[in-house]
């Protein structure tokens, strides 16, 4: 477990509600993530974890409530929203690397087009980041030529290239072959140690134990438990959490 939250809130969700048609997927969510904190969101499928994660950079809109990032309510659209998103990195389950661009171009695109960083500088930074995630030697390949684990590490480098204030991870290891999960988790653990604010939706309990400051357990669109990883795994309070843990930890 890392200990790097300094207590100042970076993102706050107040009474957030979201519906998909008649399905109430987020029910009155109140949640604060502090600067430098690593928050892990776990829970059964369909419980609203991914949706919650995606509301934080407004890939999903909300129906009521408020989301305040860095002291400002999330902009609804246009350039202000694009500017906000450039400060919130996102790593997807399916990697979503730009298929027609090389790994290096994937990483430099944001800095050059959004931040107007000179190309040379962006290239240099991209190579540093690719070095950091261990795939510098793949820089000139296309995403389809890389393994899933390598693609996901490239996607992390792409998110980091924007120097985000926070990175959202939406089930980053769920689409990976088992032997590739650890290489991605190692990168994420390193990032957590360096003090990055992270919201991680995952089923990786090992990661939650090692890197999380706090665990949020979500089911049926609600936050059922919110506590430290130790407390959650050793002493869950609700039946819903006990039931969930008994199903995943016995194997």
């Amino acid at each position: 477990m890392t200990d790097n939250g300094d207590g100042a809130p970076l993102i706050e969700l107040e009474n957030v509600n979201k519906y998909f048609g008649t399905l109430h997927v987020l029910k009155d969510i109140n949640l604060t993530v502090s600067r430098g904190e690593v928050l892990v969101v776990i829970g059964p499928s369909g419980g609203g974890k991914s949706t919650l994660c995606r509301t934080m950079n407004r890939l999903e809109t909300i129906d009521s409530g408020k989301i305040i990032f860095d002291g400002r309510e999330l902009p609804a659209e246009g350039r202000a929203l694009a500017a906000l998103r450039s400060e919130v990195g996102m790593v997807f389950q399916q990697f979503n690397l730009f298929a027609h661009k090389t790994i290096r171009e994937n990483v430099t695109l944001g800095p050059t087009k959004v931040r107007k960083t000179p190309k040379e500088q962006a290239d240099k930074r991209a190579m540093e980041l690719l070095e950091r995630v261990g795939i510098a030697n793949q820089a000139d390949k296309y995403p389809a030529q890389l393994s899933g684990g390598q693609q996901q590490r490239a996607a992390i480098a792409r998110a980091l290239a924007m120097d985000p204030k926070m990175v959202l991870f939406d089930e980053p290891t769920s689409a990976l072959d088992p032997e590739m999960v650890q290489e991605v988790l190692d990168v994420m653990i390193g990032l957590a140690r360096d003090g990055m604010t992270m919201v991680v939706v995952t089923h990786e309990m090992g990661f939650a134990r090692r890197a999380a400051n706090r665990v949020v357990f979500m089911a049926d669109g609600q936050i059922v438990e919110e506590t430290t990883p130790d407390e959650f795994f050793t002493n869950p309070k609700t039946d819903r959490a006990k039931d969930f843990l008994s199903k995943i930890l016995t194997h």
Binding site: R79, L84, F98, V114
Partner: peptide
């Protein structure tokens, strides 16, 4: 795939940038 547009938006590209740099090519 929809994920391409979501990834483009998530790094802060505007609609026109997403369209001309990622989707249309």
């Amino acid at each position: 795939p929809l994920g391409q547009a979501e990834a483009a938006r998530s790094i802060g590209l505007t609609f026109m940038q997403s369209l001309t740099l990622i989707i249309l090519p």
